[in-house]
Nucleic acid binder design. Structure first.
Lengths: 197, 197
DNA sequence: TGGACATCAGACACAGTTGTCTGCTTTAGT
DNA sequence: ACTAAAGCAGACAACTGTGTCTGATGTCCA
């Protein structure tokens, strides 16, 4: 799965150098767009060490590339969440563990978020963030069942708040208003009291 | 004060029809950019009922217009906060009152926020949001002195969290995941528990 | 009412970006 | 080793948006 571009049932498998190109392009695009959402195809090609036309071989239009980059970024975050094992242990501790493991990464994608906020509708944006939320939903529900997370607010709201608080932390850091360790402590502490009854 | 474009000490005052044009342009630009951050000068001119060249008479470049629109939007919010009298009464009640009075308005500027996140550095963005924060800071400090708001976290963090939670509420509404009244209740309740000790 | 200010209508140059295409060279798979 | 796939180099057309300028017309203000 996850062939990104095509998925023809037939044919021989894609050649290895093509895979490498696609990987370079996605990496370069992610890095570039994360800091400047308006990065051009030329600049992305330059960073990826390929010629511009090569990008178009794998991604027919700029939009296709942006979509693929977003899917890629979401995938990275999903993996981080998985590695933090949200299903293990006390809900409060598990939530702390997951947040601690992912908030910096989320912050790095700042430009990408701005880009997608600008080009996608709220529904569409949420739909594509779904894989990340799917990782967290069971944790929130588990916490609610055990009574350690508020039951008077919907799961979807809890998720939105957590996302917002994490985002706030990285914004404050980027603005140089608080240190990284201060931010982490504040973020965790606020997140917990936001979901606790 | 607030001449937006020029501030020459000399000269006669700007003509009345020019004032009207500037006002139309700012209104049109605000409305347009709030929903689509990439709106062109032509489209803004069309909406404002002026010709494109007229915009350039008052705003030399697109960037100048964007800056002016942002200042305008911030001014509107500042006024809303003022009208909600953050200095009056119990800090918790005052905070509720202010949030209730401003969160919808903040949500309307969604596209504008995306735009400014994309074009400005975190520092610059914060600097321009300053006037809004200045309205709220005394309230937070007052709450902390009275012990009804957490004292173990910096004021700047509380402000960031409140902003983030308000933003989350309007995002959830725009995505159609919760109703407006649900959102208001959830937002208030979460905001209070986030700042409370 | 006179003259400065402002808008309109339209054209213009210019820069940047996207997407396509060609011919040629390199690389990978069987 | 042969062949197909992939990449390179560079050029190209098309489009869009910005910013400028002109001359004519309309509007304010003193």
């Amino acid at each position: 799965m996850a062939k990104t571009t095509a998925m023809k049932a037939s044919a021989r498998k894609r050649r290895a150098d093509a895979d490498r190109s696609v990987a370079s392009i996605l990496d370069a695009a992610l890095e570039a767009l994360a800091s400047d959402p308006d990065t051009s195809m030329s600049e992305i090609a330059r960073r990826a060490g390929v010629v511009r036309a090569t990008i178009y071989v794998h991604f027919p239009t700029r939009t296709d590339l942006l979509d693929a980059v977003m899917e890629y970024a979401v995938g990275l975050v999903v993996e981080s969440i998985r590695n933090a094992e949200p299903q293990r242990g006390e809900p409060v501790e598990a939530l702390e563990r997951v947040l601690r493991a992912t908030w910096r990464q989320l912050g790095q994608f700042h430009g990408l978020l701005a880009l997608n906020m600008a080009r996608l509708s709220a529904e569409e944006l949420h739909r594509r963030h779904r894989p990340m939320l799917d990782q967290l939903e069971p944790l929130i529900e588990r916490g609610q069942k055990q009574g350690v997370f508020r039951r008077d607010l919907p799961v979807v709201w809890h998720l939105a708040v957590l996302r917002a608080i994490v985002h706030a932390a990285s914004t404050e850091i980027r603005g140089g208003r608080i240190s990284e360790s201060e931010a982490e402590a504040a973020m965790l502490s606020t997140a917990i009291s936001a979901v606790s009854p």
